[in-house]
Design a protein around this nucleic acid. Structure first.
Lengths: 229, 229
DNA sequence: ACAAAAGTGTTGAATCTACACCCATGT
DNA sequence: ACATGGGTGTAGATTCAACACTTTTGT
């Protein structure tokens, strides 16, 4: 038997209201390491793959165990397997990490565990991270932003019903630029990804906006022949 | 120590002239299994990861060992880890496969080993394949076609210099549709991915076409923060 | 009445697509 | 001369981006 360990880690994104700056930002839950190496540093949630467990099940399980979150979107990101990635400060066994990335809704994110060892951080300015997790987060962010432009994953950040302004805000926060509301509306409406519920969101300070829902027909992202799995 | 084995497999694509139909098609080298399970079936080249070997090195090494090919483009595709993927006809240990995909040039493909146990097959009509390799090939094909539309990987199929007609043929064969030569030329020229060498390809039956080369500046595909690795 | 977000309309620019047409070579 | 692929030009359709303007609510 060889000495390579295999683990799953997950980069989790959610839109959260930052109370300090009075704005919403892209957040990411991290767990504090309680063992050497990198004891005390922040790291991505994850853990070893059990012998009878599919990789995506490992992702879901470790996610629930450490953060109590269940994602609306979960996709494999990349497998990091460099020989020395787990043996940098002190020698350790080789670990190959199959990394997933996940999106969760704001309400879901609120329910998540939050204590000294599990906390949300800004996705674009993460603290010092253990192992090669900084690179992993960079790549996950890049994938999120890239995929946002040609798929409907933005909807995975929102609940069952939502207004177009809310959906637009998702794009604006993630892509870090403002979008023209008029053009955005037309783009989304003609894409066929959403459909109006007929209801309106009342109680706002201004004209009540239409509510939309996800169109069940098509998937949030086209992953080709992999969607079947 | 757990009982999960970790291996690397690679889907290799090349454009090859099919002598039967007098046309070029997308080919893929496969190796015949010499052991149970699936003994005698065709499978993707690959093998177990050595303890001191990076994943991409395993891909390169097994590629050379079994097919004698060295690719111009090599990228991680996906990691397949379903519990029962290697224990279908007869029980066997669990194997997680990190799959890569590769592109090789025609001249390179000619040099590759070819015998009873290593042979080229049509990428879109593969024979019965071992394990879940049929799914893997499907996915690799999908990725190739998808990525072809927004990157310059098509150039990895060609040598140092090439004509625009040759580059166009790559697109036509892979995407399985004809492209307007005039519009194709403009698209490619304005993309900045190629630059004229100043030379012309002589010896053809018609007007000698300009020769182009890859522009060294930018990479063939934008893989974000992963390009550094 | 007014402020501000929701939603509609319009215009010019940029891009895509189809196709006409000229150019240069081997036969 | 002519067939054929190499290469340029152009007109119409489609898409994109910017912004004016109307609608509807709370205050």
């Amino acid at each position: 038997m060889h000495g390579i360990e295999i683990a799953v880690s997950t980069v989790i994104f959610a839109l959260r209201d930052d109370p300090r700056n009075d704005c919403t930002a892209l957040g990411m839950p991290l767990v504090r390491r309680v063992r050497q190496p990198y004891e005390g540093s922040w790291a991505l949630p994850g853990g070893p793959v059990r012998p009878d467990e599919d990789l995506t099940d490992t992702a879901r399980r470790t996610l629930v165990e450490t953060t109590a979150l269940s994602p609306t979107y979960l996709e494999q990101l990349y497998t990091f397997g460099h020989v020395d990635r787990a043996s940098k400060p002190v020698p350790g066994p080789r670990v190959i990490s199959v990394v997933y990335w996940a999106l969760v809704r704001p309400e879901e994110a609120e329910r998540g565990i939050e204590d000294d060892n599990v906390a949300w951080h800004a996705a674009d300015h993460p603290p010092e991270l253990a192992f090669d997790h900084a690179t992993i987060v960079d790549y996950a962010l890049w994938r999120l932003r890239t995929k946002m432009e040609y798929s409907r994953i933005a909807q995975a950040f929102l609940g069952e019903t939502f207004t177009l302004a809310q959906l637009r805000q998702v794009y604006e926060v993630v892509l870090q630029r403002t979008l023209d509301p008029a053009n955005f509306r037309r783009q989304v409406e003609s894409s066929g990804g959403v459909e109006p519920t007929g209801e309106y969101l009342v109680g706002g300070r201004h004209r009540p906006p239409k509510l939309y829902r996800h169109r069940a027909a098509s998937d949030l992202a086209d992953n080709g022949p992999l969607t079947r799995l």
